[in-house]
Simulated assay, not measured.
Amino acid sequence: MTARQTRLRPGVMALYAGVGLSVALTGCGGGSDDARPQALPSRASSAASVSASVDPEAVEETAVLAAYNAMSREQMAAYRPASAEGTELERYVTADALGQIRNDLHRMREAGTVVRGELGHDAEVTELDMDAQTPTASLSDCVDLARYETYDTRARTVIPLPSEQPLRYVMTATAQRWDGRWMVTGLDTRGGQTC
């Protein structure tokens, strides 16, 4: 399996909801002996047919995006008070990515700034390599700054975005699968492209 471009398939999670469900039908009398109700497939054969129809790459892409989105939520929870205390960032990022976030928080505390509002995200997995010794993924995220503010706690005012800063830009990230779960390993927030 090599790197490929892809979009998340929205139906993957719906397949899981149906795996454990089975319906038992009972027959009622009133027909001839030849008119017997058809036997339903067993639970094991139903689960096997659903499992066979699930794309393993789509399952991994869903897991990558879940880890990235959880990291993004925890990151915003840290940026609001300019402190990672009380967050669960360590569950979703490796030491390198956590170092990037902690550097941001340190600069924010020195400047007396915090974040208010929300960042919009529209992330997708752009590459997935499950054959690597450590499975890896690359993500592209269209970040929306429309409801995001940097607030100066000393001057008690919102710091406007630089005039050249687009409201929507592409941020990239990398992730790796460690011990059965995906972790964000790096963030590139420079945002060279608009989206």
Results as ranks from 00 to 15, higher is better:
A111T: 11
A47W: 06
A173T: 11
T113G: 14
G186T: 13
P162F: 08
P162V: 13
S72L: 03
A39S: 11
E90S: 15
H106I: 08
Q75N: 07
L145H: 11
D152T: 01
E57C: 11
D96H: 15
R147P: 00
R109G: 08
T194W: 02
D96I: 01
V93I: 05
R91L: 10
V23P: 01
Y16S: 09
R154K: 12
D179G: 13
M171P: 03
V158Q: 00
T172S: 02
A95S: 15
V184E: 08
A58E: 15
L105Y: 01
A95L: 13
Q5V: 13
G20P: 03
G191R: 01
Q100P: 09
V114P: 06
V125H: 01
E118M: 12
G112Q: 03
A52G: 06
A78W: 09
N69V: 02
P160S: 07
R7I: 12
Y151V: 06
D144V: 05
M130I: 04
T94Y: 00
L161T: 14
Y79R: 10
A3S: 04
P81F: 02
R91Q: 10
G192N: 15
G30E: 03
G112P: 08
D144F: 05
E90T: 13
L65K: 05
A47F: 00
Y92V: 00
D34W: 04
L21H: 06
T26S: 06
T94F: 10
D129I: 07
Y169W: 00
